[in-house]
Amino acid sequence: MMPDLAPYTAEVLGAYAAALGLLGALVGGVLLRARRVRRQLDEMEHRRGK
């Protein structure tokens, strides 16, 4: 299944790992902030609703 990358195994895997890692960090950061803001807003509206 795994393609033979020789002699550039490290480079190709490294490039993919770096790209996916950065993308993952970006998506994680965006989602984390989205969730935090959403929770804070819900709390605030809940408090006002009472």
Partner: peptide
């Protein structure tokens, strides 16, 4: 991916703004 992240980001910013207005 770009479109999806921008959509999420704008939604977050709109909520943050609403929160600011409430405060």
């Amino acid at each position: 991916i770009f479109v999806a992240l921008v959509l999420i980001g704008v939604r977050t910013e709109i909520r943050a703004r609403r929160m600011r207005a409430l405060v």
